[in-house]
Design a protein around this nucleic acid. Structure first.
Lengths: 335, 335
DNA sequence: CTGTTAGCGCGTTCAT
DNA sequence: ATGAACGCGCTAACAG
């Protein structure tokens, strides 16, 4: 009774006294089978613990798996994971499963990881581009595999993408600060997510330029050194002879660091983060929030659409952000 | 040039002027091929954008995919995704990829989701059991598929598992409170994760019993109603005529709720949460912490071990927790 | 409604 | 070092 092997269609067919094709019909719900034989087949299958082999089925049906791949740099980033959750939810509705792979934020491994996934014949590829060139995917795209960039568009590749309205979102946040009188506003960011940080920095500059502030370089701290804690960056900024009266953060890690630095002091410096986080509401921290889950769902939907409608023109979707004022962003500058 | 189809071994063989078996040898790194033919094969493969079909390969090699499944209730729970991250890291080392599926915390869908995964012939199944009976997996286990329960052991099934030292961890936290004089200690929890909450509740009672407190029911708030905010549960607890002087939380959601409630008041009530969270250090919140990533890694390792060593006796692993005192747990009772 | 034949793309077995 | 035949488990295309 131990180490028995798996039952196949043929085994079930033999036991039920029918042909294997009939068993196939029962399990793939295609063609018609009489009530009676169907029952016999199901009984035989039950007895043998038969489970159809999706691998073989997929091979026969065109050589593609019933999976969609999502490639990300780092799974421990909560943002990434919420996106994955969104993708999974949407895929489940279509009977597809999600396969997940990470690149450890290393551009070199991206191609390797993606290649392995494509060898598995995933139906579609969703990725947060980390390498700065995705042209290596052009061949695959022409073969009809939907490719979707999330959070940043793929480079050198015509593909679907879903990104946030980064520039507008940040501009809106900074405008809310200039509206209550702030002019000296710090921008901090520590991330290699070049695209999003560039966009948000641009939005920050947009808003300041609108009120006649052009020399913003002195307030910009775009450290890409992961060993430098954002907390200290903020502290140093506040310890300047002429410190900023408000600070905005470019992403969730910078936000967390800034909050750490600000919790140490009297709340006299205004602050707005990018990306909401647990307890931000309880702490009265204003943020530019967005729906990561939605980002994932949209990405999955784009992939599914492309699958249903091959050759459709790639779409670039921008998802809105919203400014959540909870106090920290409403502190006026000292008069 | 559009809609061309995928190259196969045979295509490459034809172009290179060799047999398909030779191409197979080149790509599976098995058998020997002369330098010269190897080069010709690789050149041909390159030209045709050939990518070996893992589906077909796996089918031939025993009908199992090179994936491991992880089944969880809800991907949006940060605890769950850190576990997933740990699994992925460990699998990647063995060239396996992670497929992820969720059950929406619904016991009924667990079997359905798991069945679909097993049909895909995943090499192993790692799950956070949500249904209260996993005996339906017995057949699969006997066929040699490693099954690993994470965070809670599978029920009615002899399988590997990795769980936390929940009871001890909570007892240690409560002991630190009784040590500084607390006797009236509230326990709050809102979760359907029955197993962990039961264990932690037991640990809480253990510690109180040690100091002669037996009637703890009045301080226990184990709400399983998701519509009741833990924040209000805590508030009501504190508004009792004879309120507790300290509170412990049974999981991360309860912790977050408790922190919300406590941030509103003067910090006179001691608090210790279960599960660390972002900014807990900056806020001075004491917690019972543990390594979710390690939980995942260990689960993956158990699965891989079972794969390498079929029929080995299932192991139950318990991972330690550690009490992080940051202030909130060190507040003494009012004298 | 049911069965037969063939073959998805690859690897195993056995030749040479 | 290389090739021919066969089969993994299943389904498409035809029968009947």
């Amino acid at each position: 009774m131990n180490a028995q092997s798996r039952a196949t269609l043929a085994d079930v067919a033999r036991l039920a006294g029918v042909s294997s094709k009939t068993v196939s019909r029962v399990f793939s719900d295609t063609g018609s089978v009489s009530r009676d034989t169907r029952a016999r087949v199901l009984a035989a299958a039950e007895r043998l613990h038969f489970r159809p082999n999706t691998l073989a089925r997929n091979l026969r049906r065109g050589g593609v798996a019933s999976t969609v791949a999502f490639v990300i740099g780092d799974l421990t980033n909560p943002f990434h994971f919420l996106v994955a959750a969104g993708i999974e939810r949407e895929l489940a509705l279509s009977g597809l499963t999600l396969v997940l792979a990470t690149t450890d934020d290393s551009p070199e491994s991206e191609k390797r990881v993606v290649d392995a996934l494509l060898s598995q014949r995933v139906r579609a590829l969703i990725l947060i581009p980390i390498a700065d060139d995705q042209s290596y995917l052009e061949g695959e795209r022409q073969l009809g595999t939907p490719i979707v960039g999330v959070d940043r568009p793929a480079s050198n590749l015509v593909a679907d993408s879903v990104v946030l309205r980064n520039r507008l979102g940040m501009a809106e946040a900074v405008r809310s600060l200039t509206a209550i009188g702030h002019r000296k506003i710090g921008f901090i960011s520590n991330s290699s997510a070049m695209y999003t940080q560039r966009e948000r920095l641009a939005g920050y500059r947009d808003a300041l330029r609108e009120v006649g502030v052009f020399d913003t370089a002195q307030w910009e701290r775009v450290d890409d050194d992961p060993t430098v804690s954002p907390k200290f960056v903020v502290r140093r900024l506040l310890d300047l002879p002429d410190p900023p009266t408000a600070i905005v953060a470019g992403n969730n890690r910078a936000s967390a660091g800034a909050v750490r630095a600000l919790l140490d002091r009297e709340p006299t410096v205004a602050f707005i983060g990018f990306d909401d986080f647990e307890l931000a509401d309880a702490l009265g921290i204003s943020v530019v929030a967005y729906d990561s889950l939605q980002l994932g769902r949209t990405a999955a939907r784009l992939a599914l659409d492309q699958l249903a409608n091959p050759g459709a023109f790639p779409r670039q979707i921008e998802l809105p952000t919203r400014l959540l004022q909870r106090g920290s962003g409403e502190i006026p500058p000292p008069s």
